[in-house]
Structure formats: C-alpha cells, structure tokens
Design a protein around this nucleic acid. Sequence first.
RNA 1: GCGGGCGUAGCUCAAUGGUAGAGCGCCAGCCUUCCAAGCUGGCUGUUGUGGGUUCGAGUCCCAUCGCCCGCUCCA
Length: 544
Amino acid sequence: MPDIVPTTAAKMEKLVALCRRRGFIFQSSELYGGINGFWDYGPLGVELKRNLKDAWWRDLVRCPPVGPDGQPVEVVGVDCSIIMNRRVWEASGHATGFNDPMVMCKHCKKLFRADQVWDLLRAAPWVRALAEKCLTPAGTGFNFQARSAAQWAMTKGKKMAPGLALVRRTVAPLPVADAAGTSGAAEVVSLEQMLHYVATEPGGANAPHTPCPECGGVLTEPRQFNLMFQTFVGAVRDDDAMTYLRPETAQGIFANFRNVTDTTRVKIPFGIAQIGKAFRNEVTPRNFTFRSREFEQMEIEYFIHPATAAQWYRFWCNTRFQWWQSIGLTSANLRLREHSREELAHYAKEGAGTSDIEYKFPFTEPGFGELEGVAHRTDFDLRQHAQACGLGEKLKYFDQERNERYFPHVIEPSAGADRGVLALLCEAYTDDPGRPSGVVMKFHPRMAPIKAGIFPLVDKDGMPEIAEKLYHDLRATWNVQCDVKQNIGKRYARMDEAGTPYCFTVDTQTLSDQTLTVRYRDTLQQERLPIGQVRAFLRDKIGA
RNA sequence: GCGGGCGUAGCUCAAUGGUAGAGCGCCAGCCUUCCAAGCUGGCUGUUGUGGGUUCGAGUCCCAUCGCCCGCUCCA
C-alpha cells in the first residue's frame, strides 16, 4: 500500500495532533494555558512508555545479555530520591558547571557564555584585523597606535565591528590611561586593555566595557541561567535549606555505590540500573517532548576494572544499539555515532570515548538527535564523591580476584525514556490514504499500547457475549480492548491510530465453528483462527 | 533573555464594529454480517486573560499570559 512521506514539518505536526487526539501525549497544564517544556502522557502514551521502560528493565536487569568475557552480565536496580543533599551537586560539578552566566550584546542581540567571551574575542576577525593594524609587539605587550586604530574604525571597522564604540564615535572615546590603566597613548598595553579602550565610551556606565565578539557592541552584565531547578527543604526558606532537583539519575547511583556493594554480593564487573525523573531548566525547550524540562532517564552505571574499559565500552555501544533495533527502530533512521574529541564531557576526556545512539527525527532531519549516550566516565564521579564526603580511599573497591584496591571505572549507557517514546512514535507513524483512518501507527507488537482489539462483528446474535468472554480471559496477561459500538470499520480505524497490531472479530461463523478472524494491522490481511488458539497466537507474536 | 508570528467548540476553520456559526469528531438510540456507511437526537464556547475606546468589541487600542519559529543554550 502507498506510504506517502509528507514534508518533515507537516509530518511532525500531524504526529503531535494524533498524539493529542488519541491520548498519547498532552501539553502539561493545558487548562491554564500550558507550561513550556512539560508534558503529560495520556492513557495510550503511558502504556507505550511503560512498555519501553519494562522492556529496558527486563532486558538489562532481569535478563541481561552475556558479556564480552563470556560471563552473564550482572545488573542490580536502585530507585533513588530526586532531591539529595546539595553537596552531591557540588561534588559532581553540576552546581558550577550547570550554572553558566551569560552575557548578551545590546547591539546585535547575540548571546554568549561569559567565560567564553575572551576566547571568542581573540579569535574574532575584527579583533585580529584591528590588532594587526594598531598593535606592534613591545616587551610583554604591545605598543598601541591610537591614530591607526581611528583610521581603521572609519574604514574597515564600519563593516567588521559596527557596534564598537570606537567605530560609532571614531573620536577616541576614552583616554587610554582611564581604560587601560596606563599613563599614555603609546604605552605598552595588552590585547585586553586595547579592547577595553576601543569598546568604552566617555562617561559610559560600568566602564571599561568588554566588546561583543560578533560586532564589537556593548555587552550586558553577566546573567545567571539556572540550569538546575532549585528547591527548599523544610519550613524555612533560606540558603541553608536550598538544594536542587536532580539533573541526572546517575549521581544517586554513585552515592549508593558502597551501599550496594555492602548489601549485595555483586562483584566487579557489575552494573547498577535506575529509571527515574530528572530535571533541567533548559533555556529553550523545543521539538515536542524531545527537549523537556522534566524527563525520565534509563541509566546504568556499569562498574569495571580500568584495564577492561575499552572492551566494555564497545560491548555496551553494540548491545544498546541492537536493543533499540529490537524494539522497532529498524530503519536507517537509527545510527551509532562516536563523539569527536572536542565533544567529550569534562569527565570523559581521559576515557575510551563516548558514543551516541541517534535517531533521525522529522525535526532534526537531515540531522540526528540523541536517544542514548554511552560514555566511559572513568572514575571521575566516585573520586569526586570520595573526596567530597571525606571517606577518601575508603570508598575504593577491593577486588579479591586481583587482590587490588581501586576506584572502578564506569561505562554509562544513559537513555532518554521520553526520547525513546518519541522515536517509537515517529518510526510508527505511517500515512496511508488507502485506509479509512488515513494513518496507521506501526508499533512493534512488544511496544504497542493495546495488543489486541476484540470485537463482535455486530452487537447482537450472541456475538458480544463471546467477545466479552475472550476479553476477560486475555486482559490479565495483555492490555486488550473490547468494543461493541458502531460499525466494524470505525473500530478498525480507531485501532489503526492507536497502533494495535491485531484485532479479533467474532462473526456468524464463530457461532457454529468457534473460529474468529484475525485482522493484521500492517497488511490488513485476515485469517481465521480457533478461539482457543488466540492466547497461543498472542504469546507467539508478543510474548507473555 | 532578544526578535518575529499566532491565540474563536475536542479538531479544521467561518463570522463588514451590530444575536458566535459550519463541517468533522464525540456521546446515546436505531440500524449495520468485515474497514470512519445511513437515520434520529444530544454535547461542546467567560472568542487565552485583564483593562480601554464605543450606544455596542471575536473584530480597534494597551497590557499580560501561553504557544510556535529564529538567535542562544543543551556536562
């Protein structure tokens, strides 16, 4: 049947509309006009998400695969609190690294991280051009030629740095002495002093100014972007009571590392798994649920001996990539991509690497968006906590087999549950003008929110009773739906939009020979099946 | 945070400054023997919110909130 591929923007729009219409995903607080970056899962969405999380937990914690060493992989679970002692976030680096002050240019409106402005300035074309024109090396700095600078400002500077004070005024704005802290125009200056000088107007407030790397314009004061949500524990709302909602679930695992090794019989290598909410106050939530401020992570910290990092890293990259394929992301829209050196996080610089499992979403097309990151985090986090909590060496793991005491390294496969759901939705969405609904959601049967629809062909002649009985028999094992209302076509159409892979229909023939029809969602084919074999049929297709 | 766009029924959209409507959907009943058929009836709105102008505002003005797009951010 024809699968028409709509333009990507149109496809996303239709998918969002379907999610709302059929009860997959609603905007949070819609009743009050909504709230940006927060989403609610409806009756179908919660089943889909639950199927995803259950599959993850089952395939990684209950029945993990065999590792590269030939031994069964061992993973145990935890479920940690969302709010933790503030010192956790100081130790992990989030309290500083997650709080980047930003500055904005008042002229060209560009936004920069305050700590990056000078690096950007040194690389800026207009700064290089200006320096070449008016600075000559002298001692530890430069001699500054004010006349050459003014000349540049009246010519090339007009195009290269239209926001710069020197360009807008051309008359030297400030005596160099005031801006540069030196005593004369030809004094030895640094690049920084020269830039302060050309960027500052006479009588300007907060002088001296640092110019905008883009246009030379005036930058605002640094402003804090709160990337972690603050909250206050206890009755009194003061600084001592302040902590954060966790921005990742991983720190709960690290903070419990010793509890787990002390209370279970796990031995390295082993993993600790957790599924839970995390919170990031993103500057710009965008693209439906892809970048939300409240989201759910599925994370494993897999603890290993440092010498085995490379093989475990490769193992987890491959295992996780194959897992996403196994639940239905089989198209070329899924890929595994190794990070370049520059992309690596602060904690992963020394490690075996980081890879992303990425999905080509309609809104990232032709690019890809991250679904899961597999990172070698080295022993960064355990060391940080060992130092911060005062336990130090005592937090080291004692490896009996190796007779060695060490901080284990971790390989971290960290997946986004909401992004996973979104990828499943995007992959399943299929326009099909050939069928009444016009669209069908082709979920993998294991992920489908409703596994089967059970219908009497018409609402009489004893058919509803047979359907009802079958429904009650199946629902203890699978999420199935029984529907007797309206004509059969409407009921099939609704099941297509919900992505239900199978429908069982009781008809006249059922009354005489105890068979019913199975209708396949993807092919629209039908075949007859004895009622007694329905359970075996579903177990075969879906698993129990 | 900045700039631009947009807010009318669950959805798609009408309504010259003059009584807020249609189609679809949804619900109930009848009907219906395999793909949103038909008939009858029903449901749905503080026109995002609050001010202002006006005899009268969905429509004009101001403010505010929210959403979308771009800039930016995303360990």
